[in-house]
Computed example of a mutant assay.
Amino acid sequence: MSDMERLGTIHGVGLGPGAPDLLSVRADRLVRGARHIAFFRKKGRPGQARRIAAGMLRADAVEIAMEYPVTTEIPVSDPRYNAMLSSFYTECTERLMVAAGSGEDVVVLCEGDPFFYGSFMHLHSRLSGRVPVSVVPGITGMAGAWNATSLPICWGDDVLTVVMATLPEEDLVRHIRQTDALVVMKIGRNLPKLRRAIRAAGREEQAWLVEHAAMPEQRATRLVDAQTVTPYFSILLIHGQGRRP
């Protein structure tokens, strides 16, 4: 038996946008069966992924909480940001390697889909080739958001663009003008800038703001009517209006 065969598999498991009943059958089976459960969270918080999985874990589950050293305290443009996160992901990788070294599988709980702007991607690139790694897809938060509006996001030949509200304002304006359908993530404190960009692109009347998609607190509001925004769980949408029969 090779060294790799003696190790447990590390599974990045997509939990979907927030509702526990939106997990895939495979994700549900892995979460309920694993003895080692890892998840990301901000210090002092339970963590959204852990909240989704509440009530699903084995009684003897060993929980591995991976607490971010920084989230919004310093700007992403600060060199310290990447340095701190790089060290953090390296440390998390080693912790997961130790757990997999026992020969048992480890499940890493991931909000949405693990390969769509998720923290697990940074672990995957460090774990690959060192330990068996598996990824279970999940419903993305943006899919939960456009379903919350009860409107299709794309028709016919519509082009969908996904951008981060952290981009410079002029870049946001350009992307908003050029696309048919739009998803904007990572809004938070960038909402005033995003509002200006949407207005400059002439698409304010088409924009929707969805907060807590697929969660009990879900709220979908036209941007022109929205007064506040949830710092993290919020997505802005512009629906495509393309070709249809």
Rank of each mutant, 00 (worst) to 15 (best):
G101S: 11
A143Q: 13
G138M: 04
F115T: 01
L85Y: 09
S125F: 12
V106P: 01
A148G: 05
G144A: 12
A143M: 14
P79G: 06
Y89A: 04
A145G: 12
Y117T: 03
Y81M: 14
D105Q: 10
S77E: 15
W155T: 15
F116H: 06
I74S: 08
S134A: 15
A148K: 00
V131R: 10
F88A: 04
G144T: 07
L151M: 11
T90I: 01
E104Y: 02
C92H: 00
G118E: 04
E104C: 01
A148Q: 00
G103V: 09
L151D: 05
P132W: 04
T140V: 11
W146K: 00
F116K: 01
Y89C: 08
S150D: 08
N147W: 00
V98M: 10
M142F: 15
C92I: 00
A143I: 12
Y117R: 08
S102R: 00
P132T: 04
E94L: 09
T149V: 06
G112L: 08
A99H: 02
P75L: 13
S150F: 02
V107H: 03
A83L: 12
L96H: 05
S102A: 10
L96T: 03
D157M: 09
H122V: 02
R130V: 01
V133P: 01
I74Y: 13
T90V: 05
P69W: 07
P152Q: 09
D158N: 05
M121V: 10
G103E: 15
L123V: 03
A145Q: 07
V98P: 00
T93M: 11
T90L: 06
S128P: 00
V159S: 15
M66C: 15
T90Q: 11
V70N: 08
P137E: 11
L160T: 07
G156T: 05
V108M: 14
V98Q: 09
G144E: 12
P152L: 04
G156N: 11
E104V: 01
R126C: 06
D113G: 05
M84W: 11
R80D: 13
F115P: 00
E104K: 00
V133L: 12
A99D: 03
P114Q: 02
A145D: 15
M142P: 15
V98K: 09
E111T: 03
I74E: 14
T71I: 13
L109V: 05
S150E: 05
E104H: 03
T71D: 15
N147A: 13
S119A: 14
V76M: 15
M142W: 14
W146N: 08
G101R: 06
M97E: 10
V131Y: 09
S134G: 09
F120G: 03
D113L: 07
L160Q: 10
A99K: 03
V107I: 07
C92W: 00
V108G: 02
E73L: 04
N147I: 02
A148S: 10
E104R: 00
S128K: 14
T72P: 01
R80N: 12
P75W: 12
F115E: 04
D113N: 07
C110V: 09
E94P: 06
P69Q: 08
A145C: 14
S86T: 06
Y117Q: 06
V131C: 14
E73P: 01
G112T: 02
G144V: 07
M121D: 01
L127H: 02
D158H: 01
S128Q: 13
V133H: 08
P79K: 13
